[in-house]
Amino acid sequence: MIDWVPVIFVAFKVLILATCMFFAVKWHYDQGNKGADRRTVLRAGGKVAGIFMLAILGLGLATFGLASMLGMDLRLP
């Protein structure tokens, strides 16, 4: 039984990723057919990029905070 656990998890992961990629491509294709103006698309892209950068910064700060709270050595060699 234990030998099948990784096989089942990998198959599930591939199935979920394939489904998500299908719907992502379909959504982008449908958005391209709407004919949204360039300014709106650039504004939305800027917002997504800004939110992504804030999320990366927050995750980094949370990681370093947790690591220092656990007493890990964070100094570079």
Rank of each mutant, 00 (worst) to 15 (best):
V7M: 04
K13P: 00
G46C: 05
K34M: 00
M1K: 08
G65I: 10
K47Q: 08
I51R: 12
R38C: 02
G58R: 06
G32S: 06
N33I: 14
L61Q: 10
L59I: 11
A36W: 02
M21V: 01
W4P: 01
S68M: 06
D37Q: 07
Y29G: 04
L76P: 06
L66N: 12
A62H: 05
F52Y: 13
L61H: 05
F22G: 00
H28L: 15
G35K: 02
T63Y: 10
R75T: 11
C20N: 01
D73H: 06
L57C: 13
F12N: 02
G65P: 02
V25I: 15
V7S: 03
V41S: 01
V25L: 15
L70D: 08
I2H: 07
D73R: 09
P77V: 09
K13D: 00
F52H: 07
R43D: 12
R75F: 03
I16W: 05
K34D: 00
A62C: 09
F64Y: 10
L66T: 11
V7T: 13
D3H: 14
D3R: 14
R39A: 12
I51P: 05
L74W: 05
K47A: 12
G32F: 09
V7N: 02
S68W: 11
I2Q: 09
M21D: 00
G46W: 04
L42W: 04
V41K: 05
T63F: 10
R38N: 04
V10G: 00
G35R: 02
A62D: 08
Y29Q: 12
Y29C: 03
P77Q: 08
R39P: 00
V14D: 02
A62V: 07
I2M: 08
F9C: 10
G35Y: 00
A49P: 02
L74R: 04
M53A: 15
V14Y: 03
M1C: 10
D3F: 14
V25W: 11
G46L: 10
P6F: 11
R75Q: 08
T40H: 09
T40L: 10
R39S: 09
L61M: 14
W27S: 04
L15S: 15
L61S: 11
L59C: 07
R75I: 05
A44R: 13
D37I: 04
I2Y: 06
I51N: 11
K47V: 11
F22T: 00
N33P: 07
H28G: 02
K26S: 02
A62E: 06
N33T: 15
G45I: 04
T63V: 07
G50C: 04
